[in-house]
Design a protein around this nucleic acid. Structure first.
Lengths: 251, 251
DNA sequence: GTTAATACTTGTTCTGAATCAATTTTAACG
DNA sequence: CGTTAAAATTGATTCAGAACAAGTATTAAC
């Protein structure tokens, strides 16, 4: 259960997500300094934009509850989804190079974030080497995630893509201390299809078949994994490969 | 013509690529400090690895001449190519998050690099805010490139992928002050096919057709563009879209 | 300079996923 | 709560590009 008010009030030192946001090297004093520059915002409603393409870069954001889909509008008007950001993830760093956001972040649920003004963060980071390293590390992880995404898109079959995606989510849930076999995901099948480079029809068909085969089901925003081993095999991860997650900036 | 010895001796202050590597904010004094930590290495031969998957992270590298293909080995043994790094580009930052390289960089030609030990770089960056910002900006650009790669893989047809790739190269050449219509590229068609998520056969067929149609030719490592406008149309960039490059860390 | 290996080309067949189309289900809103 | 719009499902058809195969051209090695 989400309790927006208490989350809204929580500071970094008290936040249950702090180990996710800044896993390394900040002692209590440093944490308080970080805390001082973080602004906790009122919840965004489903469909609200956190930032949009072209907006000047002001801050990075940590997801506390809910989530975002981040997309770029392509020539044809259809948007390509580059990633999903769930609690503990940090987003907005895409704007760093140009000073303007190159993508749009839309809340997929009622969502609360911490806003970290980037100027302040950069100034603080210049005084706290470990925070600075953490920042670089964060971006490096994003890059690794995006590469995995690209690999998925270029070499995997539709079934592999979908099962791999669910497997990533499952592992992510577990890493966060939640059930890896039963969880909620407030994403449209359509959005997942876009992310995976597939059509909604194909996703629907594969979901139907995998439910039939008792591997997992995904209905009404609820995912339930019946046969994790089968899922691993279908995802092509049976006896090899790295166990990275698709979006693990803060894990 | 490459003259390895003179390149080998050049320092950052004299280097023709310095505007590419560090476009922002370093004055002469700062540049000298950076120069002091950079190690210029003897040339690598074609096929040599600059770093390989799993190796501990020691340094980032700036390409001076030649180039690299960066790939990750997938389950099946085939490797997925995540990018190409040409003169002026900086590579190696993928290892930052984990402390170990998650990919392998292979020289595609006789190649010279500057090695920048990361510990030194990070220490220096903590004293030079503009260098630190530059580092973050670099990673942000890499991320943007990887997203463009993912978008190309998920939504573009084979012809669009290939023409877009050539267009990116062309623009990159121009930005570097070289001819955008006639240049050398020491890549195998096979590697480009892997990068684009296609088979060598498909690449070969499309190249044959585009040469036939007098759009561009690519034979014996030499690319020649006959009809840039047609190329732009085929790449699906006719009257819209951003003009980013695929690998523009230093441009 | 000859040989061996690797890369590239070209043709044919086949298939996975897109596309088109028609319902059914779910969510949104007054 | 009923109405309407959006999303998801299911089916039929099509097609772009993969896979397979067999040749030719380059490049590398000795």
């Amino acid at each position: 259960m989400i309790t927006p008010i208490s989350l809204f009030n929580a500071s970094c030192t008290e936040c249950g997500l702090k180990k996710l946001c800044f896993p390394l090297g900040l002692d209590k004093a440093d944490m308080l300094r970080l805390d001082a520059i973080v602004k906790r915002k009122y919840p965004l409603q489903k469909g609200d934009a956190l930032f949009t393409t072209g907006q000047p870069f002001q801050a990075v954001y940590a997801v506390r509850a809910g989530g975002f889909k981040v997309s770029t509008v392509s020539a044809s008007g259809e948007d390509q989804i580059s990633g999903f950001y769930l609690p503990g993830d940090i987003l907005g760093t895409d704007a760093l190079a140009t000073g303007n956001h190159i993508s749009t972040a839309i809340a997929i649920d009622t969502t609360t974030v911490c806003e970290v003004p980037f100027q302040d963060l950069e100034r603080l980071a210049s005084q706290l080497p470990s925070l600075n390293h953490q920042l670089l590390s964060l971006m490096s992880k994003e890059l690794a995630d995006e590469r995995m995404h690209a690999e998925l898109l270029s070499r995997k079959s539709a079934e592999e893509r979908l099962t791999l995606f669910v497997l990533w989510l499952s592992r992510r849930q577990e890493r966060r201390g939640f059930s890896g076999t039963e969880f909620r995901l407030g994403l449209l099948h359509r959005d997942v299809a876009l992310y995976l480079g597939l059509t909604p029809e194909t996703v629907s068909r594969i979901l139907a078949r995998l439910a039939e085969e008792q591997v997992f089901s995904w209905r009404n925003k609820q995912i339930e994994i019946f046969d994790l081993q089968a899922l691993i095999v279908l995802a092509g991860e049976s006896q090899h490969e790295k166990t990275n997650s698709p979006r693990a900036q803060c894990g």
